[in-house]
């Protein structure tokens, strides 16, 4: 396995790891978003879906086992993604010890330049989000009912600052995806002349879809469409 550690030791390898874990996290975020759309179908559908997540895979496997597998994979992916990002950031800081007196960016997008801070915001949000809706810790005044995610979501989003945090975090996620989804093609070397224009379109489209859908949830609650 020494080639694998060698491979990870290189920055190109780390970027590939970030791309692969990024794709996985993106897939999960997308699925999560699609699942959450059931919010619009009513409490029954959403709660049913939440319950299915726990029994998914049974009877072939014990209840919740697939869910825990997925959770474990998510933790590992997030860990690798963050670790590689941190190591690369340190490497890059060291590569330019003295900053420029003046600095312009003729090409780098806002999204590209905010990847690191965006990542931090997203991580903080994920922690809050888990405490709030998965673990039911009282991180906000809304009451938490085990097994009724619909209620928990609606109650949470009725608090303006919970919604605001959610919206800000998802905007950050949108920017992160806008650059990240394009960037992963570069990092993995997936480019051919015909395909290249689609890489940008793909990243823009999915960043927009995920952000729009995710932001629509708190907005819908705040505006009273979902209650």
């Amino acid at each position: 396995m020494s080639w694998l550690t060698n491979f990870y030791r290189s920055a190109v390898g780390k970027k590939a790891v970030m791309a692969v874990t990024g794709v996985f996290l993106f897939g999960w975020i997308f699925a999560h978003m699609v699942g959450n759309l059931k919010l619009y179908l009513g409490a029954e559908h959403l709660n049913e879906y939440a319950k299915w997540l726990r029994v998914m895979g049974s009877p072939a496997m014990p209840n919740s086992s697939l869910l825990w597998l997925a959770r474990a994979a998510l933790v590992v992916a997030t860990w690798l993604h963050v670790q590689a990002a941190t190591q690369l950031t340190l490497m890059n800081r060291a590569a330019r010890p003295i900053a420029y007196g003046e600095r312009e960016y003729p090409a780098a997008t806002y999204a590209a330049r905010t990847m690191r801070w965006g990542g931090v915001i997203i991580i903080l949000f994920v922690i809050y989000h888990l405490l709030h809706l998965t673990l039911g810790v009282h991180v906000n005044p809304a009451p938490f009912i085990e097994g009724d995610p619909y209620h928990n979501v609606v109650a949470g989003f009725q608090i303006w600052w919970v919604s605001a945090f959610y919206i800000i975090a998802n905007l950050a996620l949108g920017l992160h995806l806008y650059h990240g989804l394009w960037s992963m093609f570069q990092s993995l070397g997936l480019n051919t002349p015909k395909f290249n224009a689609w890489r940008r379109n793909f990243a823009t489209a999915f960043a927009a879809i995920i952000t729009a859908a995710n932001i629509s949830f708190p907005l819908a609650v705040m505006l009273g469409f979902v209650r």
Partner: peptide, 9 residues
């Protein structure tokens, strides 16, 4: 050198 983060600069 540093690593590439695909800024395109």
């Amino acid at each position: 050198f540093g690593s590439c983060t695909n800024y395109g600069e």
